[in-house]
Computed example of a mutant assay.
Amino acid sequence: MTGTDMTGWTIVFDLDGTLIDTAPDLHASLNHSLESAGLTPVPFYAIRGMIGEGAKAMIRKGITWNGDDEANHDIEPLWEAFLAHYRENICRLSRPFPDAVASIDRLLEAGAVCAVCTNKTQKLAEAVLDTLNLSGRFSAIVGADAVPEKKPNGDHIIRTIKAAGGMERRAIMVGDSQTDERAARDAGLPFVFVTFGYGPEPEGFPDMVTPNTYKEVMAAIRTIMS
């Protein structure tokens, strides 16, 4: 990013699967929740397709993976079991993706503002970033329960940009899923889809680019700004 002035730009990141590889801890907590209801734990490979729409959606997908109907289960106690386990074990295995932190630092050095827009709850999102000593790098962290409607509603991203002190016309969304892509499209923002995340793969639209590493993410951001 040398020589690139990014003053006035806001770069909004999804959290799970984009900034932080949280799948191992989410997997453990999901299986704890499922086992509390007498269900079979899901294998690790399956968790990637269950992340992105919040814990309750993940639990519902876990029930479906078991070949069961979610109507046969009260989601609330399963959700409480999930949250209790996750809070106690948060970031036991979760780590930033390679070069993610260095990339954020380069963005900040170039004058950009960075923010997080996630379908995690506010407290859990803050807990992950606090535990990894990353919160101070973001001008806003906006979880699913801090807005009237979460992603894929574009208002979630717009509120995040405003909370960070930015402007929609100079903002970019970076995410790893169709949920992020739909939210970016709804908000009218260019979208950078990181292919190393959890998916599912977006439907795609003209402003979408698909980097495989954080070095390519930085190049994609620079291209969008030019």
Rank of each mutant, 00 (worst) to 15 (best):
M1R: 02
A37H: 05
T64V: 15
P202N: 13
L189A: 02
D16P: 02
I20C: 02
R169P: 00
R137I: 06
H73M: 08
D16Y: 12
L107K: 12
N133F: 12
V128C: 05
H156M: 09
M225C: 10
N212L: 10
F44K: 06
L34I: 09
H85L: 07
V142Y: 11
P152F: 15
I141S: 00
G67I: 11
K56D: 14
Y86C: 04
D145K: 00
V147W: 13
G49N: 10
T18A: 07
C91I: 11
D186K: 07
C117R: 08
T131N: 05
D176L: 08
S94R: 08
E201G: 01
N119L: 07
F82V: 10
A28C: 02
G8Q: 09
P206M: 05
T118Q: 00
A183M: 11
R182S: 09
A81V: 06
C117P: 01
G111K: 04
N212M: 14
K61D: 03
T18R: 06
H156N: 08
L39P: 00
M58A: 04
F138M: 07
L83I: 14
Q122K: 09
T40G: 04
P98M: 05
C117I: 09
A46L: 02
K215W: 09
V209W: 04
I172G: 01
G62A: 11
F191Y: 14
M208H: 10
T18H: 05
P200C: 10
D21G: 01
D68K: 13
T118C: 00
L19S: 05
V116E: 12
K151T: 13
M167E: 15
E88R: 11
H73Q: 05
S139N: 02
E126F: 02
R60T: 13
L34K: 03
G188R: 13
M58P: 00
E88W: 01
Q122I: 02
I161N: 03
A140D: 09
V174R: 00
K56C: 05
D74N: 13
L93G: 00
R159W: 10
T160W: 04
K123R: 13
N119H: 11
L129Q: 06
P152G: 12
P202C: 13
A144S: 13
I11D: 12
I141R: 00
A23V: 09
D145Y: 00
M6G: 02
P77L: 05
D130L: 10
T223A: 14
G52M: 13
E80D: 15
H85R: 11
G67Y: 11
D180T: 13
S139W: 05
D5C: 06
D68V: 10
G154V: 14
L39C: 03
D14C: 09
D145S: 00
R159K: 04
A140V: 12
A37F: 04
K162H: 15
F191K: 06
A28Q: 12
L83F: 07
V128H: 01
A125H: 02
I90G: 01
P190Q: 09
L19E: 15
D21K: 01
I59P: 00
T118D: 03
E126R: 05
L78V: 06
C117D: 15
R87K: 07
G8W: 12
L26R: 01
H156G: 06
R182M: 14
R87S: 12
Q122H: 10
F205E: 04
D68A: 15
F205R: 12
S36W: 07
R137V: 06
G188H: 12
F97G: 08
V116A: 10
Y198M: 05
